[in-house]
Each structure stands twice: as structure tokens, then as C-alpha cells.
Design a protein around this nucleic acid. Structure first.
Lengths: 227, 227
DNA sequence: CTAATTCTGTATCGAGCGATACAGATAGGT
DNA sequence: ACCTATCTGTATCGCTCGATACAGAATTAG
């Protein structure tokens, strides 16, 4: 063990506290006084551990991202594209409404800095959001090669669509929407999902023999209230 | 005319300049120095005209809101619910991508203060966003009484859904999505729209005689690539 | 033990913030 | 012309911001 006085606080706990502050007040809105008070440490301790306010924020983002990665992994291992889409939006709805009561509503990647004095923070957040969209897109392309998503569909657009709805859900959550309301929105958004043998949603559909373009599997899903 | 030295700047022009600054940098990120420089006036002139930074922001919001009201009016007069939904999302996509080149991408109501040091600003913005959702909801309820939206559909959820997608589109626009990409997203989101004689999207669907729950009008729309 | 190292709290730094005091400029009212 | 009212630019206010200097406390290495 290295010499010197040991750190008197738990880094992860302190980061969690800081996360809440950034989440509630945004990057710029969170002052050092707010942060040190919530974290229960003094400014020099903060600077010794994280270097700067931006360093602290990046550490917070990194920790937050780890949780998001866990979530995405659980989503991406779903057996088919439609299930991936459903788990993703339902999970986002659940998370954004904060049924656990541990986080503020919405998503840190939106709340903490959609816009800012210097553009570095928003760009960093956009990069994080884009990573998840990329993961979805790659998963959907894989689904096409596996055959459970129509070749005619546009994986990039579908991934963008899911990301769009997810971000929208997070905004609604911030505005006070309930978990059930968010789930309903997610459910609605999934009605547009293309399934094998169905029409694609992103380009002109060719007429199909059954005249409606929806596979019987889709129809039965609809009848059962599933999407 | 009242006495005294006349104002040397155009209020509306100054507000437009301020709008851009708040839009790009957010409420907190926009400093008085940024604002006065962009507006081409000195601090005392700003304070004489708008009272405070928050007063300026509210004036900016009011002016922005007038534009949004014009847009909403054009949308709401559409003859049926589905057209309302389409015009709304297509209009938001067009606006958010800023094809005119006059505004930053996205929406001021999201960019300028999703979160903030004091919660007053985000709450005010949320109120503005909620107004548009209310207008949509009332229009959809009217559509139900007119018969062009199924009684079984939930107008509140549909309005929330449209708002959600619209907000998501604005976020995507900020992240650099093109107008065409946003239009594709809007198109996809509208596939879920319930039409007269079709199934409702927000509650369990009853099996229908044609076995898929979509009306022939909807099916023909799909075949033509329309949504 | 002593020396070296690292963290802690207090007290404070310069910079930039939102907001103004002040004096000169420019108009209307009489 | 004169007074009053309002706007203008300069220069600056008090405050809070993010970030540190410093000295004492707590630990390891030898």
C-alpha cells in the first residue's frame, strides 16, 4: 500500500451523490458548493481526487455509462430484433420514470447538458448517446443477417427511431409523466416495428399477397395486445 | 409619443439575437456579455428594456411561443386526426433540422434549459411544452367526436406520444441528424397511428373480422408508402 | 523513532457573473 | 428655451464561481 493519509470517503458513493446533483441541476447549474456539500467532502479533496469540475463530471459519466452498458447488454442479447426493440423502450421507460426512487427522472445524458456555455460538454454527451444508437444499429444489422428483421428495412433509421423515442421518453419523464404513461408511449412506438415477412417501415412497401403487408405473426401479436 | 430619448435598437431584432444565444448556450450558459454583444446593446439598455436576464429570457420565450402558436394553428386546422399528426411531426422535423438556416438545430424549449441551477426555468419551459401537448389532445378529442379518430383510442396518450416523438426529434437534430433523417423518423412514428375502423393502439385490441385490425384505408396507405 | 507522502479543513484567490451608479445624450411638453 | 423623462455608454459594484495555498493530521517506509 502506498504511504500517506488514506482517503476519508468512498469514491463511488461520492460519485453517486455528484451524479444526482448534475442530473438535477445540469453541468453548469451544479456549483462546486452544491457538489462538495452533497458529496460530503471539501473542495481540495474533490480536486485531489478528480482534478477539476469537468474531471468529476467525466468520472460521473463513466460510472453512469457502466450502468447503461449493463442495461444495453441485457437488451442486445434478446433473441430477435423486435424483442430487442421492446426491451429497449420498455427498459428506458422504466428507468426514466425512476420507479426505484434512487435517481431523478429522465436521463443524465440529456439532463446534465443539452446545451452549455462551452460546447465540449454537450458534444461529449451526444457522443455517449450515439454509442447506444450504434450498438442498436449493429444489433439490427445482425438481425437482418439472421433473418428476423426484413432485409428491406433500414437498420440505421430503425436505430435512430428507437433512440429518438427513448430520448423523447426521457424528456416526458422529466416533465412528470408516470411510469405507466411512459410504458404506453413505448408500446405505441413499437406498433411501427417491421417484422419478418411484413412491410418495411422506412421505404415504399410493395403490395403483398394478403393485401395489408402485415404478417400473421404480427397480426396475432396485435390481437393479443402485444407489440 | 412619450418623452425621453428614443430607444436606439429594434426590440424584436434584439430578441431574435438573444434567442439564438439562449438556444445555443442554454439559459445559464448565456452570459450577459454574450447577450449584450449579440444584441448589439449595452447592459443598462438591456436592463431598461427587459428588467433582468430572466425577464429577457421570458420575452424571448414569448416571441418564440408566438411562432410555435402559428405553426400549431396551421397543424390543428387539418381536416382529420391523422393529417394533424402527420403535419405536426413533419413540421417539427423540418423546423428542428432548421432547413432555413436561421436558427440553431433543435428546439429552444429543450435546448435552453432542460435542467438548471434553480428549477424555475425548466418548469417554465415544461409548461410551454405541455401547452402544445394539450392543444393536440383537445384536437384529437374533437376528432373523436367528429368520427375520424376511433373512440377506443386514448387521445391523451396519442398526444403524449406525438409530443414524445417531437421532443426526441429535436434532440436528434441537435446531435446533427439531417432533415431527411428526421423526416424518416417522423414517418416511422406515424405508422402506429390508429385510423377510423382500425384497432386502437393504446389498449388491448379486439380481434376484428379481417383478422389484422387495420382498415383497408390504412392498408392502402401502407402500400403507397404513405403514413 | 524520523522522514516522506498524501489527504484534510480553513480560508481565500482571481475571474467572471448578473446587475447598477452615474453622467451625458436625445427626445417631448409647455 | 427650459424642464422633465427616457435611453445611452463607461466604469464598476457585490457576489459567486471554479480552483488553491497552506498548515495540520494520518498513514507507510526505513
Amino acid at each position: 500500500m502506498k504511504p500517506g493519509r488514506p482517503r476519508s470517503f468512498c469514491t463511488d458513493t461520492a460519485l453517486d451523490r455528484a451524479t444526482t446533483v448534475f442530473w438535477r441541476q445540469g453541468y453548469e447549474g451544479a456549483s462546486l458548493a452544491d457538489l462538495t456539500e452533497a458529496m460530503g467532502i471539501s473542495p481540495p479533496s474533490l480536486y485531489a481526487a478528480f482534478g477539476s469540475k469537468e474531471g468529476l463530471f467525466r468520472a460521473v459519466l463513466e460510472r453512469y455509462d457502466a450502468r447503461r452498458r449493463d442495461f444495453m447488454e441485457r437488451v442486445l442479447v434478446a433473441p430477435d430484433a423486435q424483442t430487442v426493440a421492446r426491451l429497449f423502450l420498455e427498459g428506458v421507460a422504466e428507468f426514466a420514470a425512476d420507479t426505484s426512487g434512487r435517481n431523478p427522472p429522465g436521463c443524465l445524458l440529456l439532463q446534465s447538458g443539452l446545451s452549455c456555455g462551452d460546447q465540449v460538454i454537450p458534444e461529449e454527451l451526444a457522443r455517449h448517446r450515439a454509442e447506444k444508437e450504434t450498438a442498436l444499429r449493429e444489433r439490427l444489422k445482425h438481425a437482418q443477417s439472421e433473418g428476423d428483421l426484413p432485409r428491406s428495412a433500414d437498420a440505421a433509421t430503425l436505430a435512430r427511431y428507437l433512440t429518438t423515442v427513448a430520448n423523447g421518453i426521457c424528456v416526458q419523464a422529466t416533465a412528470g409523466a408516470s411510469a405507466e404513461q411512459l410504458r404506453e408511449i413505448a408500446r405505441m412506438a413499437l406498433v411501427a416495428w417491421p417484422v419478418r415477412g411484413g412491410r418495411k417501415a422506412t421505404r415504399k412497401a410493395r403490395p403483398r399477397k394478403n393485401g395489408n403487408g402485415y404478417s400473421s405473426r404480427r397480426a396475432s401479436n396485435l390481437r393479443a395486445g402485444r407489440v
